[in-house]
Structures are given as structure tokens and as C-alpha cells.
């Protein structure tokens, strides 16, 4: 039953993985040339995290070719990690907003735009693609295959 669904998931996983890799690489380059761009602050470590997330997705592709289910695991973990750094950045924005709201000295010049990082905008994008593939939950698919 390795049907079009699996093929579509493979393709979308590849897109997500490459996206994280490319953005991570761009962020590293921007750091080296010290040129911040809107939405991509200069943070070499964050860039490394994006590269790791991308690598997890892309490793999944390799496994999907052999056995589809094994590939799901990588997509799942990749999404967990992407979600983790996404949620963390949301928390960061939340606490900064709190500081700004309380009018604390250090937050007087804060605007939400400073805290927009690739981990924020890449994750919803990845999720939309995965939901589109409709095979995000591997257990569900397996049920479908069994019945």
C-alpha cells in the first residue's frame, strides 16, 4: 500500500528539511558577514539548531525509501524539535511582552519584531505542509492500512 500518500509525504518532508537547512545556512552566513535581515537575527547557535532539525527530516527521507514507517519516526521527531524551538520562542516573546507591559526599564525599546526568528515562521509553514500530506499521524495511517 505504498501509495501516492507516501510519495507525497516524502516530497513534503524533503521540502521542509531543505527549508530548515537552507534557512539555517543563510543564518550562519549572515552571522559571519554580520548583516542582520528582518526575521533572521544574528545567532549562530540558533542556526545550528535549524540545521539539526533539517537533518532529522532529511534522514527520514532516506529511511522512507526502505520502510515507510521508519521514515515517519524521523518526521515525528523533527516536528517535535521544530515545535519545541517554536514554543520556546513564543515563551520568549511572552515574557518580553510582560516586561514591556510592566514598563520595566530594559524593555522600553522592545518591539515584537526583534523576536521574530526563523524557528517562529518555519514551524507553522512545516505544519501546514504536513497536515496537507494528511499522513502526519503514523498511527492513524496504520489503522487505515489494517482496516
Amino acid at each position: 500500500m505504498d501509495n501516492g500518500n507516501g510519495y507525497r509525504l516524502t516530497l513534503l518532508t524533503a521540502i521542509i528539511g531543505l527549508l530548515y537547512i537552507v534557512v539555517g545556512t543563510i543564518q550562519e552566513i549572515l552571522f559571519v558577514i554580520q548583516y542582520p535581515v528582518f526575521g533572521i537575527p544574528l545567532d549562530p547557535i540558533q542556526a545550528l539548531l535549524l540545521l539539526v532539525v533539517g537533518a532529522v527530516y532529511l534522514t527520514g527521507i532516506n529511511h522512507m525509501r526502505i520502510k515507510l514507517e521508519e521514515g515517519y519516526a524521523f518526521v515525528l521527531v523533527g516536528s517535535i524539535l521544530a515545535g519545541l524551538i517554536f514554543i520556546l520562542q513564543i515563551i520568549v516573546i511572552g515574557t518580553n511582552a510582560l516586561g514591556w507591559f510592566l514598563q520595566l526599564e530594559d524593555w522600553s525599546g522592545w518591539t515584537i519584531w526583534q523576536d521574530i526568528t526563523p524557528s517562529i515562521w518555519l514551524f507553522p509553514f512545516a505544519m501546514v505542509l504536513l497536515i496537507y500530506a494528511k499522513t502526519f499521524d503514523p498511527l492513524k495511517t496504520r489503522h487505515k492500512e489494517e482496516t
Binding site: 539539526v52 537533518a55 514507517e69 515517519y72 519516526a73 524521523f74 515525528l76 521527531v77 524551538i85
Partner: peptide, 19 residues
């Protein structure tokens, strides 16, 4: 499934560092 990735030969340590 999760162990397949979290304990991956090469990805295991990078994932640990990310976390």
C-alpha cells in the same frame, strides 16, 4: 519509533544538544 530517532547513531547527540 521515537527511539529509532532519539538513539540514532549520528543524530542522537545533535538532538540531545538541541534539547
Amino acid at each position: 519509533m521515537l527511539d529509532k530517532v532519539f538513539l540514532h547513531k549520528y543524530l542522537g547527540i545533535p538532538i540531545f544538544l538541541v534539547i
